[in-house]
């Protein structure tokens, strides 16, 4: 056991090429998914926050429920879409990193949209009357509020990144865990553990935990700094 932990540490410390390739692919996939989900999720959340339309409450309930989407179900859904017989099968994306990006984007879009919706709605309740009094309406008002709560929104984005980098089910199904092509940290840990190659699994586990810790620490530091700086 101790031997396995030391082996894992050695892989991390010696910048083992195989290990860091896996880490790099994981980050590339998850960061791409976060970028896409942010691009779609922030406007979506903001629109639901300030919009008044029939069925709004139901949309919010569904959106909040989707925050807990099981990754394997998302993986299955995207698998069916991208499989040879599926509606998007001709794109030939199955078992490629883009397929993994698509799956993770779907997984974390509700998280970013729902957290953004809450933040924007709270801020809008506070700002609306003052902004209207100043003669600020529509898009300009929305942009003012989004900019003012940018640090809360960053927290939403980091929550999405944390979820994306830690999930295994979706990338496993649509990526296929192909060595050197679609093998990421979580799927490697699952595979190597079952094969009994504990040093690699443990090394990746340490890196993964370090990343998640760093993300949460960054989120908290940014919030605290913003609170001190802007009130």
């Amino acid at each position: 056991m101790l031997e396995a932990i030391l082996g894992g540490l050695r892989l991390v410390a010696t910048l083992d090429l195989r290990l860091w390739e896996i880490v790099a692919l994981s980050l590339a996939v998850s960061l791409s998914a976060v970028a896409l989900a942010t691009l779609l999720g922030l406007p979506l959340g903001a629109a639901i926050a300030v919009g008044r339309f029939p069925g709004r409450q139901a949309v919010i309930v569904v959106l909040n429920a989707l925050m807990g989407l099981p990754p394997v179900v998302v993986g299955l859904f995207v698998y069916l879409l991208l499989s040879r017989a599926g509606p998007l099968g001709d794109l030939g994306l199955l078992f490629t990193p883009p397929a993994m990006v698509i799956a993770q984007t779907i997984l974390i879009l509700p998280i970013i949209a729902a957290l953004a919706r809450q933040a924007v709605e709270d801020a809008w309740r506070e700002y609306e009357e003052q902004l209207r009094s100043l003669g600020v309406h529509g898009l300009r008002g929305a942009l003012t509020v989004l900019w003012d709560i940018r640090f809360s929104l960053l927290t939403a984005v980091l929550a999405g990144l944390g979820r994306a980098s830690a999930e295994v089910g979706a990338v496993m199904i649509v990526g296929g865990n192909i060595d050197g092509v679609t093998r990421v940290m979580t799927t490697t840990i699952a595979l190597e553990t079952s094969k009994g190659d504990l040093p690699l699994a443990l090394g990746l586990g340490m890196v993964l935990i370090a990343i998640v810790l760093a993300l949460n620490a960054a989120a908290q530091m940014i919030r605290d700094a913003a609170q001190r700086r802007y009130g």
Binding site: E126, Q130, S133
Partner: peptide, 25 residues
């Protein structure tokens, strides 16, 4: 113009808050 019981300030400097208002006007 209207001044409320509880004014809402934007998360920026005092000067920038005034600039925002006159820019909006």
């Amino acid at each position: 113009a209207m001044v409320f019981q509880r004014p809402v300030m934007l998360r920026r400097s005092a000067l920038a808050n005034v600039v925002y208002a006159i820019d909006a006007a």
